[in-house]
């Protein structure tokens, strides 16, 4: 029922595919209220990641997550790079050396990721950032008690809703904040990418864990 390093790697492969598929959508969202690079940044980072997912030393989920962190930090750039990088770094620390992650470990990792993003970016719910997707996802994850797949699925649902909730918001953090009122009426690209990643993880976990 737990989630191994190989499961995490599989989830990341799935996430890479999703990021590549949604590259143009994320660019368009960022074009409306930012500088039109979020999709390209994420694609660059996850494409670099893909080439490292065969690494021999990826023996625990924690090691995989740490490799994700350093890869994203050194390839994504922009605001998203350090924020997602910190998220994965904190998640890695939260799961330690465990060979398998149970649903509590996954929830703990998500909470650590959110804490990291907030520590770095100082955004709160309502600022129209990825925090608006990640915060409800963490809450949902810790309220579910079941399989890893169930936890991630709840998180993904909540993140999707959280992302949608950014549409009417006036941005107070990041580049979109320069637009003031003109930022309202648009989906935040980082919130959208957070929701996409969590959905990819959840789908991968369901695929893996369907039998357990």
């Amino acid at each position: 029922m737990g989630c191994t390093a190989a499961d995490v790697v599989a989830a990341l492969r799935a996430a890479t595919a999703v990021v590549q598929e949604h590259r143009d959508e994320l660019v368009r969202l960022d074009q409306a209220i930012g500088d039109a690079d979020h999709g390209e940044n994420m694609k660059r980072g996850f494409t670099a990641l893909l080439s490292r997912l065969d690494g021999e030393d990826l023996t625990t989920p924690g090691k995989v997550l740490k490799m994700v962190a350093t890869t994203l930090i050194s390839t994504v750039g922009g605001a998203a790079g350090p924020l997602y990088g910190t998220a994965f770094l904190r998640a890695s620390a939260a799961v330690g050396d465990a060979a398998e992650l149970d649903c509590e470990a996954v929830a703990r990792a998500l909470q650590a990721a959110l804490d990291g993003v907030v520590a770095r970016g100082k955004a709160v719910v309502g600022d129209k950032t990825m925090v608006d997707a990640l915060t409800p996802a963490v809450a949902a994850a810790s309220s579910v008690n079941g399989s890893v797949a169930a936890v991630l699925s709840a998180a993904a649902d909540a993140a999707a809703e959280g992302a949608e909730s950014t549409v009417p918001m006036v941005a107070r953090k990041g580049r979109a904040s320069y637009l003031g009122e003109r930022s309202a009426g648009h989906l935040d690209p980082g919130a959208r990418s957070t929701a996409l990643l969590l959905r990819a993880f959840a789908d991968a976990a369901r695929g893996e864990g369907a039998a357990t």
Partner: peptide
């Protein structure tokens, strides 16, 4: 120099 309009990375 970062990517076009994208801040560089820490490395």
């Amino acid at each position: 120099p970062g990517a076009v309009f994208t801040s560089p990375t820490p490395d």
